[in-house]
Design a protein around this nucleic acid. Structure first.
Length: 571
RNA sequence: CGGGGUGUGGCGCAGUUGGUAGCGCGCUUGGUUUGGGACCAAGAGGCCCAGGGUUCGAGUCCCUGCACCCCGACCA
């Protein structure tokens, strides 16, 4: 491609509304332009990258036995009502009406249509398993779009859905997709990690997120040398090391007027927050629940929800709190709670972190008083000890016990074992060997294609601009004649350009009549991996300069060997 | 949805007590330059977000919208 015939509008200055590095660079390097909040145009240069990602994803999905389909963006209300998501999905679902006032939505995902398709077309166990996938525009009406295309409202995604006769087959297939994802992100040249993720309200046994490692990432995860890796939302926690042993003392109420937060009371009583038992109130499917966690820790609500097995988990309001605790908000504690409670019908669950607290401190269920020297078993007994807290710096690995490491990442892929959620609610069944109609076991697997592009930049850039991994680079090579009016220079550049093109290399010839500095700056900004510079300085000696985007200095190469040298670099 | 901010050539911004709009970059033309975003000269390009009001006169003051950005809440 010749630069003079290629729309590549680079910017010296950064548009004021770009927030992250990748958003700034995508605008400056001419990949995208913004049309509205969270809605972008992809220019030729950006689209090339998107297509490269798409191609890798497609090849690996095909290799994993998935079949590509094309599903509608505009989807009828009826299907979404079948699963309850027409109401449940909330405002993120963009709804619209056609001229006859029939209601539709713009697809944020495609479980409904795909399940509908498969229930109509797949009838027998003989046809299973079947995995279908598509690339398509998704629309999620995010409250606050940001980070450029990373959290956009309209984005490009690959979504795959598999249908199986039983759990085992679904899990087998799940692993296959996991491996395909690993290949995909490896081929993309990204540093990434597959981590255990929260299965959320959907349930099921498996969910993994694929994170591109980047300091600026939105997601926080833990990992360990033993191979354990998980999103902090999901990461399992062990019981904590008990402090130095001490004899249990008799419980005692102490006056703490006006202080109720762990922080304030700890200061007042000159005790460590680790001695505290924090008492939090929830409502799980209408039923009140009291959860205990050590004073310096936080309840992990998704975990609590899973332990309780409830559909909806909310923080209790003040009224519920008072009703259950029988006291002012802030002064509740586990001791005598069940006896004091006006409505004793609630569950009391404790995190593993409170199990070993000796002579602990908590609210006394009486305003302005706390109880000290509380001990499990003697003073209170929860219904059970569970892992319901958020993992924290310094915690140990749930597998091997070593201290876990924390890192940040960008979620680019998510694999999910759905189970029967959609097949049951949509009555999608097949006939098994015994002639019985049984629901499909399903899995779903997404990759944010447009997000991969942003993540690659977020991971690989420097002060001068982008540095594309070879596999994603819009052009692999840029040929830079420094003076296009000099026939020797231009002729040599043309020759190298043509030869590379003939070899099937994606090559850009910067044939603009611009000063050297402008071209160098643009080459760096746009991040093309290999640069061939043809200039009057070295050409009389029969040399051109070849430089990798991340190399500090160019290498002199004889003109005759230039193409060969470039090709070696592309391997 | 709550709080805050910003809307002025393509981009980044300035615009005084209200007097009819400017700078830098970019763009066009000519010249000089020519190895890391050159210089000189001459140009083109504006319904100052929209609507209403105050005023002899509004980019500027006052209402009302809208858009965009930031923080939070929400959602997963």
């Amino acid at each position: 491609m010749r630069r003079t015939h290629y729309l590549l509008p680079t910017l010296k200055e950064v548009p004021a509304d770009a927030d992250t590095v990748s958003a700034k660079l995508m605008l400056r390097a001419g990949l995208i332009r913004k049309v509205a909040s969270g809605i972008y145009e992809w220019l030729p240069f950006g689209l090339r990258v998107l297509r490269k990602v798409e191609r890798i994803v497609r090849e690996e999905m095909d290799a994993a036995g998935a079949l590509e389909v094309w599903l509608p963006v505009v989807q009828p209300k009826e299907l979404w009502e079948e699963t309850g998501r027409w109401t449940y999905y909330g405002k993120e679902l963009l709804r619209l009406k056609d001229r006859k006032d029939t209601e539709f939505c713009l697809a944020p995902t495609a479980e409904e249509v795909i399940t509908d398709l498969v229930r109509r077309e797949v009838r027998s166990y003989r046809e299973l398993p079947v995995m279908l996938y598509q690339f398509g525009t998704k629309f999620r009406d995010e409250i606050r779009p940001r980070f450029g295309v990373m959290r956009a409202r309209e984005f490009y995604m690959k979504d795959a859905y598999s249908f199986h006769a039983d759990e085992q087959d679904a899990e087998k297939y799940y692993k296959r997709v996991y491996e395909a994802y690993t290949k995909i992100f490896t081929r993309c040249g990204l540093q990434f990690r597959g981590v255990e993720a929260d299965t959320g309200t959907i349930g099921g046994s498996f969910s993994h997120e694929f994170m591109v490692l980047a300091e600026t990432g939105e997601e926080l995860m833990v990992s360990c040398d033993c191979g354990y890796a998980a999103n902090v939302e999901r990461a399992e926690c062990r019981a904590l090391n008990p402090g130095s042993p001490e004899p249990p003392l008799p419980p005692e109420d102490v006056s703490t007027p006006g202080s109720w937060s762990v922080e304030d009371v700890a200061k007042l009583l000159k005790l460590s927050p680790e001695k505290f038992i924090k008492t939090q109130f929830y409502v799980a499917d209408q039923e009140p629940v009291v959860a205990l966690v050590r004073g310096d820790r936080e309840i992990n609500e998704p975990k609590l929800q899973r332990v309780l097995g409830c559909k909806v988990l909310e923080r209790a309001n003040d009224e519920t709190y008072r009703k259950v605790a029988g006291c002012e908000v802030g002064y509740a504690g586990p001791v005598g709670l069940k006896e004091r409670a006006r409505n004793p019908k609630f569950r009391l669950v404790a995190d593993l972190s409170v199990k070993d607290i000796v002579n602990g401190v908590s609210g006394s269920n009486r305003k302005d008083y706390h109880t000290v020297h509380i001990n499990v078993g003697r003073d209170y007994q929860p219904d059970g000890f569970y892992d319901i807290r958020v993992i924290r710096e310094g915690d140990s690995c749930p597998r091997c016990g070593e201290t876990v490491r924390f890192s940040r990442g960008i979620e680019v892929g998510h694999t999910f074992k759905l189970g029967l959620k959609y097949s049951q609610s949509m009555n999608a069944r097949y006939l098994d060997e015994k002639g019985e109609r049984v629901p499909f076991v399903m899995g779903c697997y997404g990759i944010g294609v447009s997000r991969v592009v942003a993540a690659a930049i977020e991971q690989r850039h420097d002060d001068n601009g982008i540095s594309w991994p070879l596999a994603l680079a819009p052009f692999q090579v840029i040929v830079l004649p420094l003076n296009v009016t000099e026939p020797n220079v231009m002729g040599t550049a043309e020759k190298i350009y043509q030869e590379l093109k003939d070899k099937g290399v994606d090559v850009l010839l910067d044939d603009r009549d611009e000063r050297a500095g402008v071209k160098f700056k643009d080459a760096d900004l746009t991040g093309i991996p290999v640069r061939v510079t043809v200039g009057e300085k070295k050409l009389p000696a029969g040399l051109v300069e070849i430089k990798g985007r991340d190399e500090a200095k160019p290498t002199d190469v004889p003109v005759s060997e230039a193409v060969g040298d470039v090709l070696r670099r592309l391997k």
